[in-house]
Amino acid sequence: MAISPADARAALIRRYFDACNAGDYDALMSCFTPDAAHYFPPGLPEIPWRSADTISRKWVWCVQNLGSQWTIEKILCSHDSNEAVIEWTHWKREQSVAQRGDEWYVFDDATGLIKEIRAYYAAPTVSNAQSLPEVNGTRMGELVDFDYAGRGYHLRWE
């Protein structure tokens, strides 16, 4: 049985997150078109990230320097377009902070690879960790009064 395009996109997103968590440059590169772009909300340096090489190098840096790990909370893939949206948590273990958010993905029609990611945060970036609420020893950038635990979201990175 052939895999549907939506299932192939979901599998690629999961492979991308596995590569991010492993800090695996080559595996990250294999997820993107060469000219891919990753857009972010204001507040981060050197954004947007343009090219598969830049995106891959930046995520490897985050794993090596921030102890970054990511969990996927939800994936929704369109059945009639080359797009998907996910909800994630980015755990910065070295700083004991985490950021929740969403990303919108656009896939290349010819290759099926990721050509664009647009990140949206559930709260301001976690650069001012002292102002964030603490959950299980981690300062969390997340929506106010949303029942993350009750809805089955990850409360720790492992």
Score class of each variant (00 low, 15 high):
V85S: 12
T71S: 15
S30L: 08
A27L: 03
H90N: 08
L132V: 11
E103P: 00
A119Q: 10
D109E: 07
A52N: 09
Q130N: 15
P45D: 12
F107Q: 00
Y16A: 03
H90P: 00
E94L: 11
S68F: 15
W91Y: 10
W61T: 05
Y25I: 06
I13E: 01
Y148P: 00
L132S: 13
N136I: 04
S30Y: 05
S96T: 13
M29K: 10
P133C: 14
L155A: 11
A149C: 12
I86A: 06
I3A: 13
E46L: 15
L113I: 00
W157M: 02
R57E: 13
R57K: 15
A11S: 10
T89F: 09
I3T: 13
G112F: 04
C20G: 01
V126F: 07
D26Y: 07
W70A: 08
Y16S: 08
R57V: 09
H79P: 01
A110T: 05
L155P: 04
I117L: 13
F17G: 02
W104G: 00
T54V: 15
A110E: 03
D109W: 00
F40L: 12
K74C: 05
L76I: 11
A119M: 13
E87W: 08
W59S: 03
E134L: 11
I55V: 10
R139F: 11
N82Y: 03
C77V: 09
G112C: 07
W70Y: 07
K115H: 04
Y39M: 09
D108V: 04
V97P: 03
G137S: 15
N21A: 10
A36D: 05
Y25E: 11
G112M: 07
Y153Q: 09
G43H: 06
L28T: 04
Y148G: 00
Y25A: 05
D147Y: 07
P34A: 12
E158R: 14
L76Y: 08
T89A: 15
Y16M: 13
K115M: 04
A11F: 05
V126S: 05
L113C: 02
A27G: 09
R100L: 08
P34R: 10
P34L: 12
E83R: 14
L12F: 02
N21Y: 02
R9Q: 03
Y39N: 07
R100S: 06
R139M: 08
E134M: 13
Y39R: 13
A10E: 06
G137Q: 13
V144R: 08
C31D: 04
Y25V: 05
E94A: 14
T54W: 02
A6R: 09
W59P: 01
D7M: 06
A149S: 14
I86S: 06
R50T: 04
W49S: 09
P124E: 08
F146L: 12
E103C: 04
I114P: 00
C77F: 01
D18Q: 12
F17T: 07
D109H: 01
G137D: 14
V60C: 03
S96Y: 07
W59H: 14
D145L: 11
S78W: 05
D80E: 07
W59D: 04
D35K: 09
